[in-house]
Design a binder for these strands. Structure first.
Lengths: 378, 378
DNA sequence: CTCACTTCCTTCGATTTCGAAGATAAGCGG
DNA sequence: CCGCTTATCTTCGAAATCGAAGGAAGTGAG
């Protein structure tokens, strides 16, 4: 039903390796795919004839003949991706290697419900396609990130906390009525993790924490997004050790989110008489050395670190990447690190890197691109 | 260097599918391996000629012709596996499908150091081989479980807590001097998890908790043992919420192990004037309805449940299997369940099964068999 | 019992993949 | 400039794999 890329057999694997940037030459492909060099040459030939791959000059020598560089042909197709937030949507077009063609941000109230929101996104896609993509370059896939849990089996939104009207809405089906293409619907933190993974080559196991208004987390195991039964990666409703007791929106007391999320920090600041409207404002306050803000952020980092301690011991990742708008506040990362180093097993922290996210603002869109390419090739 | 099984190419995959019990017929193999039915027939023919596979009667029809059942030939080889504890070792021989040929338990003090201990094990292997295996049936691999952390890169023991003389000892190298074969050295909880995984067909993501003298945990992700950087699965040194403060052997206060391990329960019972020597004795007390014991076990279960809550939200497994000698105490599982159901996200517990381990006492040996077969086929 | 249907397994020619050998194209040291 | 080394890529016969077709052996409905 879905119009997939016209590739068969081993071609898909080769195309994927080039698209994800892991391979740049026929020799790379032979090494990474496990195929014989001769077979690789044959398939690459076919892919070039089909207009999907292109040769582009020579790469740098590694001591012998220089490789002939391969890249995805710009006519191979584009992907339309979006990342939905509470009050805005970030969306754009990528080529098949995940490189942005155009990305923009629009206001968009998720509370307007799924139909209007999704139609707005689709309209925006159509406008961008008309403006930025030649008519003969095909759209190969459509994907969106959702700020709530998505059931991977049905691609529906399930029990979202701040998305009235979205519960059990069949997002993928709705988009599929407009696009006869592979459709991706995924939690936003998961997309961010998938996007971040490309920036940590060599690291197979990652935790990616999104510290923004809420606290999200995505998990990469063996280079692939781990979904579990659909809810994997949640860390925001872990109970933290505390003297006081705050009731979280989820109905349980003392969730991490109630202490360390951007939303929690903003209300704590309000109580101290400092009004802010976005988590990014907290970063500004910290940079301006407002003591209340710094202390709050440090506290949040320590609490997040205590939770991460458990998960680092258990999951033992290579990297914990911290992103989201709050992550720009230096003391956050410092406090997370301190808590994890102090409490974790030496074996677990031996080669662990706790670092700022590398993918930047478009991490989720890039992740959507990666996963969509996978879907279009399978 | 290591004498591997005389298989090449696709033969290994097919043999593995039969050995692990996932395939019983050529048709199964075709479905699971992705090979064409004709290719499967050819390879199976070769494996039968090589004496590795055997045909054995007919299976049950699924609505058409009955399949011709395949099993590993009994002459294909045996595996020698051991599971080392603090004061004893459980060891035996398995056929290549992991079915026990002979298993026995011997006293053995791990504190005697690695050389004497490992030589004892090897002597026991040799004796069992001489007695139970015809001389023309080859030994295909040797493996042992270690009650401490094992670095998967070097197969050495690293910073074990109750194994004097073992730190940094190259266990695999030492065994390899006696056996020119694939050698497996792995943490005991990991082996147990690998063994348990076979008993949960259809479940790809498992947590296996071993509640004995200590608290161990192994993780199966996508059907494979997750090692992380070598320390994955540790849950015993997570900080628990507590009014009091107990210093754990690891140097940190309030580790789960200090509250909920068999060792911790035994010393708590001793304080109440009830002397026991093994965690299994606690189970007896609980079954005899000794109130102190029941209350302690219930408390331990609750604490373990609180820790598992975090991990279930994060990892979102299909199954949490609870084994180890303490797991025979009913209230343990009940309290774990109660804590997890109460606090976890509905999406995470929707289809979650928290159940007693199924593999029984030989779980670790079976796991060693599974992993060794893998090693012998790669 | 017969007939339609399903599943299992094999046969055989077409296709794909492999791998050894060689051609091509660099870097490097004298 | 010239050999020596390294790496990339192609050629071509051998081997593995595929897939369509068909035979074998069962189930179930009428």
């Amino acid at each position: 039903m879905n119009q997939r890329l016209p590739v068969q057999g081993a071609q898909g694997d080769l195309l994927r390796l080039v698209a994800t940037g892991r391979a740049e030459s026929r020799a790379d492909l032979a090494r990474l795919s496990g195929l014989a060099a001769s077979s690789v040459s044959l398939r690459v030939e076919e892919l070039i004839d089909a207009g999907l791959l292109a040769e582009e000059g020579a790469g740098t020598s590694r001591g012998g003949r220089r490789p002939r560089r391969l890249r995805l042909s710009s006519g191979a197709g584009v992907l339309a991706v979006a990342d939905l937030g509470a009050h805005h949507v970030r969306l754009g077009l990528l080529d098949l290697s995940g490189v942005p063609i155009v990305i923009e941000e629009r206001r968009c109230e998720i509370a307007e419900g799924p139909r209007r929101t999704l139609d707005r996104i689709a309209d925006a896609f159509d406008a961008l396609l008309a403006e930025h993509v030649p008519a003969d370059v095909p759209l190969r896939g459509v994907g969106t990130g959702i700020p709530g849990p998505v059931d991977p089996a049905t691609l529906r939104v399930v029990t979202p906390s701040r998305m009235p009207g979205w519960n059990e809405f069949p997002v993928a089906e709705h988009l599929a009525t407009r696009y006869d293409l592979p459709v991706l619907v995924e939690n936003d933190a998961n997309l961010m993790a998938a996007g971040e993974a490309r920036w940590w080559p060599g690291s197979e196991n990652l935790m990616v924490v999104k510290a923004g208004t809420g606290i999200g987390c995505g998990v990469i195991v063996n280079g692939h997004l781990h979904r579990g039964r659909g809810a994997a990666g949640d860390i925001s409703h872990v109970r933290v050790r505390s003297d006081s007791s705050i009731l979280c929106a989820c109905g349980h007391p003392d969730c991490l989110e109630a202490y360390a999320s951007g939303a929690a920090l903003m209300s704590a600041l309000a109580e101290a008489g400092i009004e802010v409207t976005r988590p990014a404002d907290i970063v500004t306050l910290v940079n301006d050395a407002v003591p209340e803000a710094t202390s709050l952020v440090r506290n949040a980092g320590r609490r997040m670190g205590e939770v991460l301690t458990v998960l680092v011991n258990f999951f033992n990742p290579d990297v914990v990447a911290v992103g989201g708008s709050l992550s720009a506040a230096e003391p956050l990362l410092t406090s997370i690190r301190a808590a994890v180093w102090e409490r974790c097993l030496p074996l677990a922290t031996r080669d662990l890197e706790i670092a700022p996210a590398r993918a930047g603002r478009d991490a989720a869109l890039q992740g959507a691109g990666t996963l969509l390419l996978e879907a279009a090739l399978t």
